[in-house]
Amino acid sequence: MMRLRYFPMFRAVRCQMAINFYLETFGCSLNSADSDIIVGTLARINGNRVESIDAADIIIMNTCGVKEPTEDRIISKLEQLSSGKTPVIVAGCLPKISFARIETALPDYAAIIGPQSIQSLSEVVPRVLKGEVGIVHLDSIGESKLAWFEGPPNSVICTIPICEGCLGNCTYCAVKFARGAVKSYSKRDIFDTVERCVHSGYKEIRITSQDLGTYGVDIDSNLVEMTTMIDKIDGEHRFRLGMFNPNLV
């Protein structure tokens, strides 16, 4: 089977008929936020999230590879899905950490997408539904993912990422392989996303990343500046900060 490598040039192609997709998320709060970005991305092409694999036109697994037990659980799931007929897209951190294990578990994968290129799903999904397979896109698209963010339905809580990556090079940790160096979203993008969520009725805004304490090191800013700015947003809501090294704040 021919494998196709996908490059970072894409445009959203809205489908006339609804695309029923099943999305399963593994891992940390940043991965959960990425799943909200996936939902927002597919909403632009008439995507409809379903709760059952049996009802899906396409399956998306947003994976984690930081802990071995989680990785093993994902691989087992992919092995089960490999016997089905519904196309499977593997996204998230695991493609950057254990690509070979994914290929072995799911040799007929529809696409493998890295965590910095999930916005490309707006073009990849229609291609997959036309029968294309073996699409690989691991490189960063280089644009903010926040423009595609859509908060979860039927909830008053949403989780918004402000940066990804880390400053460390710990030999025991795979985060650096998956997310790379720190990449902070602009304060304007964060402000606009938080304001949009507050005005949509969310009461608890959870701010997340691999390490919140590193926010701004690459854009001449910091966590204090960013939180001071979003604290000016009107409305009844509260912020919760998580996942950071206090010594970096």
Rank of each mutant, 00 (worst) to 15 (best):
E79P: 06
E79A: 11
E79K: 15
Q80G: 13
L81T: 04
S82K: 12
S83F: 11
G84C: 08
K85M: 14
T86I: 15
P87Y: 10
P87R: 13
P87V: 11
I89L: 10
I89F: 08
I89N: 04
V90N: 02
A91P: 00
G92N: 03
G92D: 08
L94Q: 03
I97G: 01
F99C: 03
A100V: 13
A100P: 02
R101M: 05
R101V: 00
I102Y: 06
T104Y: 08
A105P: 03
L106V: 04
D108E: 13
D108V: 02
Y109D: 09
Y109E: 11
Y109C: 10
Y109K: 10
A110D: 10
A110R: 11
A111C: 04
I113W: 03
I113L: 04
G114A: 08
G114H: 09
P115H: 03
Q116S: 15
S117W: 09
S117V: 07
I118S: 06
I118T: 10
S120I: 02
S120R: 02
L121D: 07
S122H: 02
E123H: 06
E123R: 03
L129H: 07
K130M: 09
K130R: 14
G131P: 06
G131E: 00
G131Q: 04
E132D: 11
V133T: 15
I135W: 00
I135R: 08
V136K: 14
H137R: 13
L138A: 10
L138C: 12
D139S: 15
D139E: 15
S140V: 05
S140A: 15
S140K: 12
G142Y: 05
G142I: 08
E143D: 14
E143C: 10
S144P: 11
S144V: 05
S144W: 04
S144Y: 06
K145S: 12
K145R: 05
L146N: 12
L146F: 05
L146I: 07
L146R: 06
W148Y: 15
E150G: 00
G151F: 06
P152M: 11
P153Y: 01
N154D: 15
I157F: 06
C158A: 07
T159L: 05
T159S: 12
T159G: 04
